[in-house]
Design a protein around this nucleic acid. Structure first.
Lengths: 200, 200, 200, 200
DNA sequence: TATGAATGAGCCTTCATTCAT
DNA sequence: AATGAATGAAGGCTCATTCAT
């Protein structure tokens, strides 16, 4: 009757998992913040693990949706990559919570972590595809797709995280930072850092 | 240099922390692998936290040493950046264990994580300095130092991790991959991905 | 006689209690098998305990009915005892479920268990009466009634249980086994095991 | 160093398990009675289940020892059976705790219960062997071994339990009752209940 | 009558840490 | 220096029961 309850648990879980990481997160805390009894969580989710995975899948779907939508507005791979970078930075910045989990819970051999990397690979493939299409059209250099795509993802996500977790008092307006960071990333990824290219 | 026992604990701790992450790592397991009694660890280290921090500091010192040594061989910022990238990839690849902890335990508000990010900032500053010097000399584009440096670090470390944690059966020879990956990163970071630059 | 819903709950409860014992039995499971919502059980029964007691009382009534009916067909205590043994074995064998609960939930100091033993005592008294009447008529040895009656009940019920819970693949036809076991019990209880009796 | 601790846990566990049954028994209570911290139990036993099984195995070993010793004093199967009955009644009476668990936790399909019945079968085989040897020598009637042996065990154990759990105020001296009950069982099992056998 | 979402006390188990030896 | 038995706080999960609909 009330999908409301599930939604509350979900919201609360995102916050708590993000704040504490999977291991330190306490079901008690999630329940408290959601304003439900502990048992209620277990009525809707099989356990901590399932709740977490449901959460991450949800997050991954959202980000993939956003990125795909960004890419549909143009056919030009260069613009598409631009959209990807902006979308990625924007989403991660607004869901720092999710960004943190994505980066910190993706490495390891636990089942959950396997599933995670699989999802992450989808995102990387999105980037890879753009690079591939652009390479075919001659508007991108012939880069080695996968490694480069992963590197681009790593650059964006770590940059966002580092920004989110710096001393809270010196943080500039988020919206401004998002634009700034996306620009810096675009510059790095589009042109690289080396100046003189004629002589090379 | 270090007494036998401590060294064994250290080695064992690296393995266990890397395999399980900080939270899942058990002091029991560390003691078992080190071949010492659990109490012995507490004789040498104040607790789990201290052991972990000591470990990470050690790791950070080693990587910083390696990177600094790489940079001393030349004065040319372009070559220095090359050395940095190679050194970073090489070290992280050989110490995947450390790479994983570095990336997954750096974000959060626990004391230990603060200390971590502080250390990481040192590494980023190393990159930033090179970019700065290169920019001053005109051999680098005038990039926004900090963001770009973080992005470069993120690109390298996530790329290495993704490689280390992919399906174990399709892994090529490590040494080969290290060269390859460093090359791909260098290309990305040096030239970017966009092809036509004539108009610029 | 009983309304549909209650009957379904009853049937389901018998199965679940028998399969899992009182403690391990879950109201959820009982409701599921009965095809009703969990709340429905609580609409008809005060709780788990009451449901269980109702069940056992029902079982005890049935078995007592069956045994009493068996005894009415003759006046001869020897034949009556025969009927008791056959009836007991037959009933327990066909209601292994009940047999198990009877034997395993009867010992302890919880209220429910007291009530149980009280019921069981009724059954034992039935046997005791037959032995008493037979002793008065001279067709039974002058045995100490209560102990012997309990022993007879124990012999029959444990024999049946042991048979019901042995490896499922080597089980012979139930009907056959019932006759067999009743015979063995009759022989034991009628003649005992010692051979030479002339010299005594 | 201190097998003392384990012994205390063992003793306490026997009491608690017997008083409450496996499911209702609380590790907290066992620890409290043993005078140790809860964790101490888990230092020595893997869990509740293992503790319980260890307990039961210990009990079974003790009873088998006692019964085997009883049987060694004579070669005559009739005397041996006498020893078995006396030993069984005596042991169960003195370890009502164990008797209860034996009878109430032996039926079911959980792993632990399988193991239990297996152990119980050993005991039954002891009886079966005596009956077999006696039958071969002609001092026992040619009874069907297994069923009869199970029935004898059931008779003895249920008789003891019924006695142990009757109203506490009307209990006679234990030692006296043990002798009495063993006698009643011997009479039942040796001669049966039917009086006139000449005419039959 | 019947439902099923919600509850929360209760329990088993884990594990970092201590300390007597 | 080293040991390992003992500790106990903490946390995930279960499940009988309630109640608004």
């Amino acid at each position: 009757m009330r999908p409301e309850t599930i939604e509350q648990i979900f919201q609360s879980a995102v916050e708590v998992f993000a704040h504490s990481g999977f291991e330190r997160a306490k079901m008690d805390e999630i329940a408290r913040r959601a304003g439900v009894a502990k048992g209620t969580i277990y009525y809707h989710f099989k356990g901590k693990e399932e709740l977490f995975v449901a959460l991450m899948n949800d997050g991954m779907e959202r980000i993939m949706d956003q990125l795909r939508r960004r890419m549909e507005v143009t056919e030009d791979p260069v613009h598409q990559l631009e959209g990807l970078l902006e979308g990625l930075v924007e989403y991660l910045y607004h869901n720092g919570t999710f960004a943190k989990l994505l980066i910190s819970e993706s490495w390891g051999s636990i089942e959950r972590q396997h599933e995670f990397r699989a999802r992450l690979r989808e995102l990387v493939e999105l980037i890879e595809d753009v690079l591939g299409r652009g390479g075919a059209r001659g508007c991108f250099l012939p880069v080695k797709g996968h490694d480069t795509a992963v590197a681009i993802f790593g650059a964006a996500s770590v940059a966002v995280l580092q920004d989110l977790f710096r001393d809270p008092d010196e943080k500039p307006a988020p919206e401004e930072r998002i634009g700034e960071m996306a620009d810096h990333l675009k510059q790095l990824i589009y042109k690289g850092v080396v100046a003189s290219r004629s002589g090379k």
